[in-house]
Design a protein around this nucleic acid. Structure first.
Lengths: 193, 193
DNA sequence: CCTACCGATCGGTAGG
DNA sequence: CCTACCGATCGGTAGG
C-alpha cells in the first residue's frame, strides 16, 4: 500500500509503533522501543505525536472507518446471501491490505481509555448487527439454514479474523484467492441444504 | 468447574491473576492489581508464587495439556471426518469449561519469555499438524472438499477460538449445543458436495 | 531532534 | 501476610 509513498515524519512514527504494537502488544511497547526503532530518543517522538495512546486511537478508528465504508458499499442490494458474500470479501481484503494495523485493531483496542473504548465497542456492535441483518435476510429468503443469528455472525467474523496473524504477502495464495476460499467455506457452512 | 472445591491459597492467587490477565492483558496487569483483588499487599503474593510470569506459564501449559489429552482421545479411530468432528467438540468443550484461562492461553502466551514461548509455539504447531492430518484423511476418503489443508485448519481453529471471549454460562445455548452448532457449520463448510 | 530530568510505578527482596 | 524498601523503567515535559 505504501511502498513508494512519501510518508510524513508523523506517519513514520505511527508505522513503527504499529509494527511494535502488533509484535509485543500495546502495553508492553515503550516509547523508547519505538524511538530506538527509528534511531532517535523517546522524547523526540513528542514532536510528532501527542501521546502513546493517540497512536493506538488512530489505528483503531481508521481501521473501523475502512470496515464501515466496505460494508456500506454492499448493503441493501441483492439477496442476503449475495450481500454476505460481498461483505466477507471486503472484510478479508481490509484485513490483508494492512495486516499489522488489522492485528492491532483486533486485539489492542481494549487498551483505549474512556470514552474511546466505549465508542469502539459501540461501532463493533453496529458492524456485527449489520452483518446479522444480512444473515437474517438470507434465512428469510431460504438460502441460509435457520440458526441463531448472533451465533452465526460471530462464527463468520472469527473465521475471518485469524487472517492478519497468518497472512504472508509472499504466500502461495493471493488476497482474492483467500477471500474466495474463506467465503466459500463459510457460505457453504451456512447454506440450506 | 471449581464451584465447591477447596482452593489452596496459591490457586486463589492464580485464579485472581487469570481473571485480571484476561480483562486487562498480562502486561497491563500489575502485582498490585492482583493483590488488591485479594485484599492483600503485593509483596505478600510472593509467599505463594515465585513470579508474575510463573502464573502465566501455568495457565498456558495447563491449557495446552488439556488440548493434547483431548485430541489424543479421538485420533486414529474412524474416518477423518469423524475424528475431526470429535476433535472440534473436544476443543470447544475445553474453551467453554474455563473461558478465562482459555482467553489468556489464546492471546497472552506471547508474553512468555524464552524458552517457554518457543516451546509453546512448537506445541501449537504440533496440535495444528494433527488436526491437519484429520483433514488430509477426510480429503483422501472423499468426504472433504480438496483444498489447501493448512488454510482449512486455520479456518477451523479460528472459527472456534472466538468462543472464550463471548461465551456466557447463562446464555441460551449450553456447552454441547454450541459444540454441535460450531462443528455443524464447519463440517458442512468443508464437506464435499 | 537532543539533553536533562520529573513523579509515578513497576516486579521483586529483606526481614520479620 | 506486613512494612519498608530497592533499582529499573515508565510516559511525558522543559527548554533549548
Amino acid at each position: 500500500m505504501t511502498e513508494i509513498q512519501h510518508l510524513s515524519r508523523k506517519e513514520i512514527v505511527e508505522r513503527a509503533a504499529t509494527a511494535l504494537f502488533q509484535r509485543k502488544g500495546y502495553a508492553a511497547t515503550t516509547m523508547r522501543d519505538i524511538a530506538a526503532d527509528l534511531g532517535m530518543e523517546a522524547a523526540s517522538l513528542y514532536s510528532h505525536i501527542r501521546s502513546k495512546e493517540e497512536i493506538l486511537q488512530k489505528i483503531c478508528f481508521d481501521m473501523a472507518e475502512d470496515f464501515f465504508a466496505s460494508i456500506a458499499r454492499v448493503e441493501k442490494t441483492g439477496t442476503g446471501m449475495g450481500q454476505l458474500k460481498s461483505a466477507i470479501e471486503g472484510h478479508v481484503k481490509i484485513l490483508t491490505r494492512d495486516k499489522r494495523s488489522a492485528a492491532v485493531f483486533l486485539t489492542e483496542w481494549r487498551h483505549l481509555s474512556q470514552p474511546f473504548s466505549g465508542n469502539f465497542l459501540a461501532m463493533r456492535n453496529e458492524y456485527e448487527g449489520r452483518l446479522r441483518q444480512m444473515i437474517a435476510l438470507g434465512i428469510d429468503e431460504g438460502d441460509i439454514e435457520p440458526m441463531d443469528e448472533k451465533f452465526a455472525v460471530l462464527t463468520v467474523i472469527s473465521a475471518m479474523n485469524w487472517l492478519p496473524y497468518w497472512y504472508r504477502e509472499e504466500g502461495k495464495m493471493n488476497e482474492s484467492e483467500i477471500a474466495g476460499q474463506i467465503s466459500k467455506i463459510i457460505l457453504t457452512g451456512l447454506q440450506k441444504k
